[in-house]
């Protein structure tokens, strides 16, 4: 319990006294949730995962979301990323109302506005690093040469240009995650959502990944919303939030 209390304290402090160089409080919220609730059904029994949740994420911030297992972190992340729709309330992300958007609209919206980073990297094992990064660009009207150029650029940003023809199995976990990050930024999204991006990594690789995320946030002005268990990872974010029993604290 003491760990969680410490986390909570740290989060409170961060909220009270935000470091000026990390956030821009005056910028409008890029993610806005109003009274959002999500109910799942386990069999016939309804399970309220989120209930009356309000959240504003300002553009350009780097936020970490912590919370115990089953607190609804992933559900919240999925809602923000447009992978799922709320049962109640209203969600606006990057200027689009996602609340009642169709699957098709959401898919197109995601391809333009969201970059995903997963705990298990989720690279296609049959594709090279470059091809993996190129994948989201297949949904655009870009030509082959242009796609390749952009994918290379993205790989350069994550520092893996020299590994672009390697397959995922030939890369270390940290490298795989960096490829995944390159894939997340290749279509120049406004927001990057990361679900336990360091969960499968050793400390050193995890730090590298977090540094990279910071860089994306500062230099490329990406808004990053990260779910994590790891207090060290949470530390690196500009804002720490805590979710417990479906409520933000």
């Amino acid at each position: 319990m003491s760990d969680a209390q410490a986390e909570g304290k740290a989060a409170d402090e961060a909220a009270k006294n935000p470091p000026p160089y990390r956030t821009q409080p005056e910028s409008p919220a890029i993610v806005s949730l109003v009274g959002v609730g999500k109910t799942f059904f386990r069999g016939k029994e309804p399970v309220k995962v989120l209930d009356g949740l309000d959240l504003d994420v300002p553009e350009g911030s780097f936020e970490a979301l912590m919370g115990p297992s089953g607190s609804g972190k992933s559900t919240l992340l999925n809602l923000i990323a447009g992978l799922d729709r709320p049962t109640r309330g209203k969600i606006t992300v990057a200027g689009t109302d996602l609340t009642n958007a169709s699957d098709r609209t959401l898919a197109k919206w995601r391809s333009q506005n969201i970059g995903f980073i997963f705990q298990a990297y989720n690279l296609m094992p049959v594709l090279t690093a470059l091809q993996n990064v190129e994948l989201p660009l297949l949904l655009t009207s870009l030509g082959g040469a242009e796609r390749k150029k952009r994918a290379q650029t993205a790989l350069r940003v994550v520092g893996l240009e020299d590994r672009m023809h390697h397959y995922p199995r030939q890369l270390s976990g940290g490298q795989e995650q960096r490829v995944a990050i390159a894939r997340a930024i290749v279509n120049d999204p406004k927001i990057i959502v990361a679900d336990e991006p360091t969960g499968d990594l050793d400390r050193q690789s995890a730090d590298d990944i977090l540094t990279l995320l910071e860089k994306l946030n500062k230099e490329l002005k990406k808004t990053i919303f990260m779910v994590t268990h790891d207090p060290a990872a949470s530390e690196r974010a500009s804002v720490q939030r805590r979710l417990d029993k479906g409520r933000l604290k």
């Binding site: 997963f118 705990q119 298990a120 976990g173 336990e196 969960g199 499968d200």
Partner: peptide, 14 residues
């Protein structure tokens, strides 16, 4: 046993 247990667990993170 070791290899089998490791399996492809790495890809089953979540």
């Amino acid at each position: 046993p070791i290899k089998a247990m490791r399996g492809s667990s790495r890809r089953r993170g979540w």
